[in-house]
Structures are given as structure tokens and as C-alpha cells.
Design a protein around this nucleic acid. Sequence first.
DNA 1: AATGAATGAGGATTCATTCAT
DNA 2: GATGAATGAATCCTCATTCAT
Lengths: 193, 193, 193, 193
Amino acid sequence: MPKLGAEPIRRAALVKATIETVGEAGSLEVTVAQIARRAGMSSALAHHYFGSKSQIFLAAMRSILTIYGAEVRGALAAASGPEARLRAIVLGSFAAGSFRREAISAWLNFYVLAQKSPEARRLLTVYQRRLKSNLLHELRPLVGPRAEEVARGLGALIDGVYIRASLVDGAPDRDYARRIVQEYLDRELENRT
Amino acid sequence: MPKLGAEPIRRAALVKATIETVGEAGSLEVTVAQIARRAGMSSALAHHYFGSKSQIFLAAMRSILTIYGAEVRGALAAASGPEARLRAIVLGSFAAGSFRREAISAWLNFYVLAQKSPEARRLLTVYQRRLKSNLLHELRPLVGPRAEEVARGLGALIDGVYIRASLVDGAPDRDYARRIVQEYLDRELENRT
Amino acid sequence: MPKLGAEPIRRAALVKATIETVGEAGSLEVTVAQIARRAGMSSALAHHYFGSKSQIFLAAMRSILTIYGAEVRGALAAASGPEARLRAIVLGSFAAGSFRREAISAWLNFYVLAQKSPEARRLLTVYQRRLKSNLLHELRPLVGPRAEEVARGLGALIDGVYIRASLVDGAPDRDYARRIVQEYLDRELENRT
Amino acid sequence: MPKLGAEPIRRAALVKATIETVGEAGSLEVTVAQIARRAGMSSALAHHYFGSKSQIFLAAMRSILTIYGAEVRGALAAASGPEARLRAIVLGSFAAGSFRREAISAWLNFYVLAQKSPEARRLLTVYQRRLKSNLLHELRPLVGPRAEEVARGLGALIDGVYIRASLVDGAPDRDYARRIVQEYLDRELENRT
DNA sequence: AATGAATGAGGATTCATTCAT
DNA sequence: GATGAATGAATCCTCATTCAT
């Protein structure tokens, strides 16, 4: 009897393996065979499920962004009031599922992918927009007209902290990362009227 | 027709072509033949002068960082006093030679290269350190004990602005980029005692 | 149409094709593509099964030495008594599978390979040692203390006859070859006390 | 003033360098550039003097055979009487100029070259014939009708000792080599009527 | 569903050879 | 005479992708 739901399991395994493989290699120049082997299947099967290498990459990217989104939402759920929610978004951006060695490296590589692949670019843009809209929503009551510029700065800063974390070897330092964005936030909020 | 002193000319042409090719492709997955063709020579000659593809990449990366360093130094030369010098560094980081489409894309790709190539990583680290030391030097008289944390934030923010610029198509918006970091700076400086 | 158990078949075909190709070319400077074409497959498949050109060569060399060993053993099986066995070894060295145009030329080339490849050298040394030990075993009862020196002479003479056969075009003259070593043997044996 | 005789000096340097390079590499797969560098000149000049790589090889081969011939002739000059002359030929075959690491390895490789290059084959054949004729001349008065077969055996044995010497690393053992052929000779001569 | 088999299309790299100076 | 410059042609090897089973 064919296992029910083999497909979603296989796809998930491939997505996970892709992030790990790309993360470890620090590059998109990994082979489908490597990914498939890590996922415990043949490369032919990987093609069967995803059609092409770039579809595999896209699926992995979606996964990374989905996890990121979920973590931010999770942090938000526990917070009430604009400032608490704002801090939750910012800190949630460095939660365990996203701010880990492989995911960071994979994320960087998907930024590169977005240079070429319109679909990858679209994904990234959507997430940036969503983050910005989230930030703005909480910032407006806090800093009023400066909300727009603070949101821009926060978005860029988060990405900057991520990209710099990609250069460190070993586990990324979450506290250090969070401190940088929190200080930025503190500075902005202490000035509010 | 062999000319005397062809080597430096050829090498420079290859470096330039590499940045353009990688910038256009938005990826390191370009062939030596593509680069060589753009530089007006055979791929064999490119190998003759650089030995290997990775040496070509490294030379291009050095070139990017050298240009960046020169532009920051150039901006610094015209400024006097800590605050002016600080703003010069930060604005110089987005000068014309560095903050242009191809260079940004190539820079992003060299970040990726640094994940794998120790030499590339070394180059990047040296430049980050140099920038930070420059920032600290001017920040200390201005913000005293907070210099360290502001320098960290500025460094990350500059990188963040760069990586986000890599996603925009068309010419990058220098003013927009500068505004983001300037606002950060303004905020930090207005609070100084 | 993939068949089960294709691997051993393909490998054997490649080994055969290698010996033929090297034999015909009279040189190791043959391409994997040539070998693969003769074996009826793509060069990619050849690499898939052997990993590298040198592994292909090594496998071919092993094959040649295995055939040689089998032929000598075959000849030995039918002989009884030291002298008969000794003559069997010597004559078996020129049996049909080994002493043929292509195999001789390939053998010569593998001698060259052994200058550079430690594994190739090991293979050759093992076979020389085995031959010598076989010879000594039969020679001791026949010529006593001179066994060692006769064995050395016979070994060198067999190789000498082979290398000279490599220069003749057309089919090698087995009888001529055998006569040379037999005369050597006759001379040594007639002198025994 | 252009040096008189630059050409013969350059050619000789290239021939010497070729033998050394091939000997060291243990293979004909050496580049013209390697040879030229060792000879202290550009590869372009090597081509200027020899026209092509194969001409360089042929010249080196001629040199090896010439040295061999000279050494045998030298040994012959000091000997009188058939047996002495016969032993001189055989021992002369292992004189210092020929029976040395590089020359042996180069000689083996030239045997390979002779499989493909008619001119190389011609050179080798000429030398084999000359050796045989020399041997026969002295053997006839010593072993009469068996001269032919002894000459054949001696020729093959000398080549066999050479090829086996090619497998040993370090300096070849001249005494060991000579002993093998001398024992053969002793055996043949003691039986003469 | 799953895979071993198979390959076409490259891509980095090497090298003999040529040529202008 | 001598060489740096330059390249076309190869060659090994890799890999995404397809297909029959």
C-alpha cells in the first residue's frame, strides 16, 4: 500500500536538505544530487517532485520566509501595546528558527538568487513590504511622522545584521544581534515627544 | 602584436570585466570565457594572467574594496572636525564608484564568496575592521562611551542599505541610501551631552 | 533502457576498450571519449563508473595482469614435476590472451604508467614477485643454489622478449618468443648436476 | 656580436633538458615549456630550433642512442679477442652514461614513442640491429651455429634488465644488472665445445 | 512511487604553436 | 637570436535532466 502523503513528506525533506546543503556550502552551487542524498532519495525523485533545480530553491526560500514570518507573528501574539509589539517584531526577527547558521547563509544566497530569478525577487519583496507595514503600524502611534523613516532604517538594519552574521563562523550571536537593533530602537523611542 | 607592459593592462581589463559580468549576471556563476570575451581576449589568456578563476574573482574583489577605501579616504580628506569627518565616512560609503548597480551586485556576490573562500573572507574582514576603526576614531569625541555601539550599528546599517539596494532594478538611489544612514547619525548625535 | 546489473557489463566493456585503444594508439595519450566511444557509451558514463581516467587505466592494468596470471596458472595445472612446471610457467607467459598485439602494447604503456602512479607500480611489483616466487619454487629442486640467479634472469628475459615484441608490427611471433626463453632454460637445465 | 655557435649550444641544452624532464616525469607527457625552462630559454625558442615537440623528442632519442653506441664502442676499444670483446659489449651496455635513472626512464618512454612515431621506431631498430651484428661477430667464433640464438637472447635480456631497472626507485644497481647478463653469458660460453 | 542508467551540454584549464617586435 | 603575447583546439570532468522499468 502506497504511503499516503508521501509527497508532502518528500518535499519537506528536500526543502530542509536544501537549506542545510546551501547553508553548509555557503553557496547556491550545490548539486541536486547532494541535496537529494541528504534528503535520503535519488536526484531523479527530487526532479519528479519539483520539476527543476530552481523550483527546489524557490521552495526552500519560501520555507525560510515562512518560518521567519511565523516567528515574527508568534512574537507579536504575546505582546500588547505599540511599543511592546514593535519590540516583538524586531526581536522576533532574530528568533531561533531564522537566526541560525544555515538559515542565515541560505538567506544570503537567496538574496543572490533574487538578482536573477524574478520569482525569488518577488518573494523577497513581499516579505520586506510586509515587515515594513508591520513596523509602520506600530511606529505611527509612537513616532508619528517619522514612522516611515524609522521603518526604513529598521528594515535595513535587520538585513545588515543578518549579512554580517553570515561572516562569523560558529553559531551566530543572537544577543549581540538583538542589542544592535534594540539600541537603534531605544534611541528612536526616547526622542519621541 | 605583443606590446610591452601588456600584463597590467590586461589584468585591469579582466578585473573590470569581471565586476561587470558578475554584476550583470547577479551571480558568480559566470564563465571565464564570458569575462574574457568582455575584456577582449581569449579565456586562455585570462588563465595565463591569473592562473585560475578564483584568482580572477579575488582580484576583482580587491579592486572593489580598494575603490571603496579610496572613496572614503577621498571624502575624509575634505572634512575637518569629528562630526564632519564622521559624516564624510558615512556619505563616502555611497560614493559613485562603489554605490552603482554592478558594484553593488558584485559586492553582494563577494559576500557569498567569502562564505567559502578564506582569502575572500579575510579581505572583507579587513575592510569591516578598517571602517569600524575609522568610525570609532571620530565617534569617541562625539558620543564617548557609546562610540562602540554606534559604530557597530552604523557598519551594519551601511551593509543593510547596500544589500537592499541590490534588489532594486535600475540605478540605485544614492540620496535615499544616504538619507537612511544620515537619519541614524542625526539621531545619535542629537542625543550627545 | 536501463538494465539491472549494467554496471559490471559497462565496466568490463570499458576495460576491454581501454586495452584496445591504448594498444592501438601505442600510448596512454588517448582520451576518455575515445575509450568510451569504443565501449559504446558516453564519456560521462565512463566517468560515472570509474570516477577518473586514471582509475580506468588502473582497472585495465589489473585486467591485463589478471589474465596473465590466469594463463600461467592454467598452464601450471596441466604440468607435473618441477621441470614440466617450470616450462609451463615460462611458456604460459606467452599464451594467447597476454601475448597479443594490443595487450603487449598496453602492457608496455602500463610500465610507463608505473613510473608515475604508485598504485600501478604496486600492481607490477606484485606480479613480478609472484612470478619470481613461482619460478624459484620449481627451480630449487632443479638447479639448487643457482635458483635465485636463474629466476632473475628468466624474469628479465621474459620482459625483454615482451618489450621487443612491442616493436614488431603485425601479430607477434609467439613461437619465436618462446624459443628464446626455452633456449635459455635448456642451457640452464642441461648444466645441472 | 652574435655568439658563434649559439645554435648547437641551445640544441644540446634542449636535448639534455628533454632527457632530464622526461626522465623525471617518467612520461612523455611533459610540456615544451617545462623542457625549455630547464634549458634556460623560452618555449618559443625551443620551437624555433626544433620546429615541433616531436622533433625535440626525436633529437633526445638520438642523443640517448648515440651515447649508448659510444659507450659500447669505448668498451670495445680496450678489449681484444672474441670473448673479451663480447663481454665488453655486454658490460658496456650498462655504462654510466646510459644506465642511469633518467636515461633509463627516458629510454623506456622512447620505446613507447616508437609505437607511434615511425622515425622513432627506425632509430630503435637500427640500434638493435647494430647491437645484434656486433654480438654475432664475436659470438660466431665462440659458439658457432648457436651464435644467432645467443645474440637474440642477449639482446632481449639487456632490454629486459633495462625495463626492470625502470621500476626501481633510487639509483639503478649497475652491478646487479651486469651480473644477470654475465651469468647468461658464462652459461653459454662454458658449454662451447 | 522510486531509481539506476544514461547523456548532452558545458566549463575550467592546459598546451603546442605562431607572430610581432 | 630571442621572447612575451596570444589563441584555437583539446580534454577531463560535472551536472541537470530524462527515461525505462
